[in-house]
Amino acid sequence: MIAFDIVLTLGLLACAAMALTLRDRTASIAAFVVAGLLIALSWVRLAAPDVALAEAAIGAGVTGALFLRSARRIGPITGGPVGGMSASIAAALGAGGLSAALFWAFAGTSGPVPYPPLVAANLEASGVTNPVTAVLLNFRAWDTLLEIAVLAVALALVVMLGPAPVVPRALGELVLPFARIVVPLAILVAGHLLWQGATAPGGAFQAGAVLAGGMLALVLAGIGPAGERIVRGALLLGLAGLAVFVGAALAAEGLTGRFLGYPAGAEKAWIIAIEASLTLSIAATLCLLFTGPVRRPHQ
């Protein structure tokens, strides 16, 4: 299997190098998306299926779509390489040196591994059997809460900046049949991922990303009523995730005296409830991050 790993990583490095050096925007973005899919494969090889799911949906899917959208608006790369040869060589030396140092540092570590036994010991008390979900939603739920806050702030920022909204008509006819199949499928898959997240790979982020993909297909096909009311609803939905999570954290403190400490025995119910609302909220947020808010009259 080592051979497969080597080929995979070589391909990955090649794709990344192409994404960062090709002079054609579309080709570069295509290389980036392919690199994203290869990375998802690498995560599978590294026994991290949760991350692989999220990477495929968010890293390659949503990010790639975002790049495509911006590339169309910004236009082709203009101007040659800057800084001259000496700067480029200096940068290459610096980056190469740091890269080598990093490899030496990471490969040379065989430090203690306190987490796996700790997670295993406390898994039963966490209410779920998927260790990654247990870490995300229970042991280190505060990280996840703040991560949702990052999403909300990014949403507020994008709404404030108000980039031009995506116009779906250009693709409409072609995408329509595709969307008819994809959307129900996406909803089904998202529901499954969400429920499965408690025991097997999957969870709010993956489900949310898949759902967002479905909704984006809908929007691109021009089916979604992209009126102001819908966008506003999506905005509220996107923000609601953070509110629900913070509210749950405070409610848990009211019940158990511990911030984010779920009542004993009911952990699973709490976690599923929070994840469900996060799924909807993440899907709405990712959608809005892509489509942008409705253009305001004064702009």
Binding site: A149, A152, A156, L235, L250, F259
Partner: peptide, 21 residues
């Protein structure tokens, strides 16, 4: 409720409210 947990949650909740309306 302790001050510590309130002082981190309250601004975030208020941020959601102000972003929404």
């Amino acid at each position: 409720m302790t001050e510590a947990s309130l002082i981190v949650s309250l601004p975030l909740l208020a941020a959601v409210v102000t972003a929404a309306s």
